[in-house]
Structures are given as structure tokens and as C-alpha cells.
Nucleic acid binder design. Structure first.
Lengths: 157, 157
DNA sequence: ATTTTAACAGAATAATTTTCTTTAATAATT
DNA sequence: AATTATTAAAGAAAATTATTCTGTTAAAAT
């Protein structure tokens, strides 16, 4: 795979995962190094794809999107071409932020973020149920969220 | 709620959501403005909490965490104190990156990221099933992911 | 033992962030 | 309607950071 991470790399990743606006200077100080090697390591981590991107995490509720819903879906047919079409359609719905093909009691698990229950119902009626080959659809409405992050614990790798 | 977003704010948020390392200068140019008002708006969006944090998004697979699993859980008792304890316990497991209390066929939906099926099994056996009051546990193993993002479509607010 | 390579330190430069002052436009008050 | 506050923006200056470059050291390879 071309490149192995050492403990300095994982520490850098851990810090940038937690706050990507942290300066290389501050990271370097935390590691007892100077800025140049830290800078070079970060660039390498970006180039090699360990760091995919840098993003601002917004407060969905404050923006007016107060409801997160998970939807488990089974399809009636499983032909390859249809599965691909399904995923493609799904990607056009701006409400959907995750779409996983899963094994277990569903074929797909979706995660979506909408304004409220009403917007959710509109989505179901005027978008989701229009898709063909749809089998069972089961919604899990989020009541509260104890934890929701992208941050991976890197102490275990 | 103290502050209403105008169209310039949402454009800034959209850009930072997509790439938080984009310079204020570049954002300002895209908006036909100078850097200072854009800078001030960003600081305001941070201060007011619309922007929660800035993070580096890592490639989990490259780091060796190749498996994402969703777990639906029902509990046998629903006393408030126990629910709180459950969430607290869950937060101590580094594998778990999301924990939602939901309505529907489960009480909780968890999302976790682990190395592989073996690590997943270890988690189930030596961590999850040790929790008391556990009822039904149903796992959805991710086979492939069509979409997985935090980026909210802001054109609809 | 010699060469090569990779990682780091330190300094210099380029670019960006951040602060400050001034101006224009809008809203509020009398 | 005139005047006064407020707010948002522009522009310039200062401070900090990112980025590049050069030289050095240590480790790895030959």
C-alpha cells in the first residue's frame, strides 16, 4: 500500500481530526519538533489519501434541520443493474447524507437530515416511495443523539 | 435565537463545509467581496455556533478500519436512570462513533467502525453483551457505501 | 567503508489571518 | 424630514502562519 504510518503520523492525524485549524506550529510544539517536518508529513498524509478532506462541521439544528432519520430498506429485486440505479437515484436526494448497502435484515440503510417530521413525510411520499422495486421500508426517527462524530480513535491502530 | 443567516452566510457555510481550508480570500473573491467582511462573518458563524468545529476527514479503510457496522438495540427496561447509564457506557467504547436514541423497531441505533469482522465479533462478545438489560440486538454489516458525508445541502434553507 | 536516502532543523520568503480605521448605507429616533 | 445610531463593508497595516529552500544528521543500503 506504499506507506506505513508511524506514531508521529497517527498523532498528527489525531490532532487534525479533532481540530483541523490547529497550526502546524502548535502541532510541532506538541510533538517536540519544528514546523518543517510536521508540514511535510501533513502534505504527505494528504497526498497519500489518509486525509481525504478538511471540512467545517455545522450545527444542523441551528440551521433548521432538526430531524435525523435512519431508513432501512429492502428491495424486491436484486439485479445488479437495478441496485446501481437505486444508489444513483438516492444520491440525487439532497436529504440523504449516507447510503450503505448492508447485510442483515435490510438491503440498504439510509441516513437523512430534514427540517422536521413534515419534511420527512414529504420525502417518503413524494420521493422515496416513487422508486420502483421497493420492498419493506422501516424508519427509525432519532429522538436524541448521545454521540455523533467522525473522529476515529487512533490509539488502537 | 439571536441571529438570522442571510444568503451570503449560507454560501460561506456551503464553501467551508466542502473545504474548510479554503482561504477567506478565495471565498471573498467567489462572493465579490473583500476579505474583512468575510472574515468577520466566519468568526460570527463560529461564535454563534453555526460552525461547531473544523475537522480532517480520514480514510478509515486506509487506516485499517475496514468495517462499518450499524447495530439496532432494544432494551428490556426503560427507566430513565438506566437509559442514561447505557449511553454513558456506550460513550466509553472507542469503536462507537454514533449513538442515537430512536423510535421505531429499536431503542438505540449505533454506528461503529472496526478493523474487520473479527474485531466486530470481539466487540459484541466482550463489550456489548456485557451490558445489562440488553434485549434484542440486530446488526447491519456494511457491504459497500454509496454515500457517506456530513455535508448538508444548504440550498434548501 | 562508502554511498544513498530520508527526516529533521533552521532560516528566509510568500501568503494568509487578524486588527484597525474609515466610509457608505440602512434603520431608528426625534 | 432631519438627525442620530447601527451595521456592513472596504482598504490598509500588522501579526502570524504556511511554504520553500538549504544544510545537517542519522539511518539504511550497497
Amino acid at each position: 500500500m506504499g506507506y506505513a504510518l508511524d506514531s508521529i503520523d497517527t498523532k498528527i492525524l489525531a490532532m487534525l481530526q479533532n481540530n483541523s485549524n490547529r497550526t502546524t506550529k502548535s502541532i510541532a510544539e506538541a510533538l517536540g519538533m519544528t514546523t518543517s517536518p510536521v508540514f511535510e508529513r501533513i502534505k504527505k498524509l494528504e497526498k497519500e489519501g489518509y486525509i481525504k478532506k478538511y471540512v467545517a462541521v455545522l450545527d444542523n439544528k441551528k440551521i433548521g434541520l432538526k430531524l435525523t432519520v435512519f431508513i432501512g430498506i429492502t428491495l424486491q429485486g436484486h439485479t445488479r443493474s437495478y441496485l446501481e440505479k437505486f444508489v444513483k437515484e438516492i444520491n440525487n436526494f439532497p436529504e440523504i447524507i449516507e447510503c450503505h448497502r448492508v447485510s442483515g435484515n435490510f438491503d440498504y440503510l439510509l441516513k437523512l437530515v430534514v427540517e422536521d417530521i413534515e419534511a420527512y413525510e414529504t420525502f417518503i411520499i413524494s420521493k422515496l416511495t416513487l422508486l420502483p422495486y421497493l420492498g419493506n421500508v422501516q424508519s427509525l426517527i432519532t429522538l436524541s443523539t448521545g454521540k455523533e462524530t467522525n473522529e476515529i480513535d487512533l490509539s488502537r491502530i
